[in-house]
Amino acid sequence: MKFAIALFSAAHAPSSRRALLFAQAALAGGHEIVRLFFYQDGVYSAANSVVTPQDEQDIAQQWRALVSEHQLDGVVCIAAALRRGVLNAEEAARYQRNAVNLDAPWALSGLGQLHDAIQDADRLICFGGP
């Protein structure tokens, strides 16, 4: 089965961990993840500026490792990221900000990427949200 996964909550939220565990289990079960789409507060799960307390699991780092290890398509919604100060080098330069906190393996893109993923996947699985 081919899954598209959308994450709407930050790395410290329980739903982010559940999404990560689901993605790991899906891959271990031989399924395909066509795209991970981080939207709303989910963009914080991709930011490399998130610092996790020492007595907690670093879910943001685990997401980064999963995307890198499995060469997944990890997309961060550009509008949600800009609104929350999550910037790659190109956007930081465009808006004259000196803080870059998003880099590989993540890609900034729009909601069209989520739409495309839904078209390619058998199932869209969403975690978190308002």
Results as ranks from 00 to 15, higher is better:
Gly112Thr: 04
Ala26Pro: 01
Ser16Thr: 07
Phe8Asp: 00
Leu111Gln: 02
Val75Gln: 06
Ala117Leu: 02
Ile33Asn: 01
Val100Ile: 14
Ala46Glu: 00
Pro105Trp: 11
Arg83Ile: 01
Leu7Phe: 03
Ala25Trp: 00
Tyr95Gly: 02
Leu102Cys: 08
Gly29Val: 04
Ala107Tyr: 02
Ser16Met: 08
Tyr39Phe: 15
Phe38Ser: 07
Arg123Pro: 01
Asn48His: 13
Leu66Tyr: 05
Ala26Cys: 07
Ser109Asp: 15
Met1Val: 10
Gln54His: 07
Glu69Cys: 01
Gly30Tyr: 03
Ala47Asn: 07
Ala117Glu: 03
Ala4Arg: 02
Ser45Glu: 03
Ala60Asn: 02
Val51Pro: 00
Lys2Arg: 15
Glu32Ile: 04
Leu72Ile: 09
Ala104Asp: 07
Met1Trp: 06
Lys2Pro: 01
Ala99Gln: 13
Leu7Val: 15
Glu91Ser: 14
Phe38Asp: 01
Ala121Asn: 06
Glu90Ile: 08
Ala28Lys: 13
Pro53Thr: 11
Phe22Lys: 01
Ser109Ala: 15
Trp63His: 02
Leu114Ala: 08
Ala28Pro: 00
Gln61Asp: 08
Val43Lys: 13
Ala121Leu: 07
Leu87Lys: 09
Ile118Tyr: 05
Arg94Gln: 13
Asp41Met: 05
Val50Asn: 06
Ile59Leu: 09
His12Trp: 11
Ala6Trp: 00
Gln24Thr: 06
Val75Met: 10
Phe37Tyr: 15
Glu56Ile: 00
Gln40Pro: 00
Ile33Gln: 04
Gly42Trp: 10
Ile5Ser: 04
Pro53Glu: 10
Asp103Met: 04
Tyr95Gln: 14
Ala99Trp: 01
Gly29Trp: 09
Asp58His: 04
Glu91Ala: 14
Val100Leu: 06
Asp58Val: 02
Ala23Asn: 04
Ala89Ile: 04
Ile118Asn: 05
Ser109Pro: 00
Tyr39Met: 07
Gly128Phe: 12
Arg83Thr: 09
Gly85Lys: 09
Leu20Tyr: 08
Phe127Ile: 04
Phe127Arg: 11
Ile59Pro: 03
Arg64Trp: 10
Glu32Ala: 14
Gln40Ser: 09
Arg35Glu: 08
Gln119Leu: 15
Gly29Asn: 12
Gln40Lys: 13
Ala19Val: 01
Ser15Trp: 07
Ala117Asn: 05
Ala28Leu: 11
Pro105Asn: 10
Ala93Glu: 11
Leu27Ala: 07
Asp55Tyr: 11
Ile5Gln: 02
Asn98His: 12
Arg83Tyr: 06
Pro105Ala: 07
Gln62Arg: 15
Leu66Val: 02
Gly128Ala: 11
Gln96Val: 09
Ala92Arg: 09
Ala10Asn: 10
Arg64Cys: 09
Leu27Asn: 04
Asp55Phe: 11
Gln113Arg: 14
His70Ala: 12
Leu124His: 08
Ser9Glu: 10
Pro130Lys: 15
Ser15Leu: 10
Asn48Ile: 06
Pro14Arg: 14
Tyr95Asn: 10
Ala80Asn: 12
Asp73Gln: 13
Gly110Asp: 02
Ala10Met: 02
Leu102His: 10
Ala80Trp: 03
Asp73Phe: 09
Gln24Pro: 00
Asp73Thr: 11
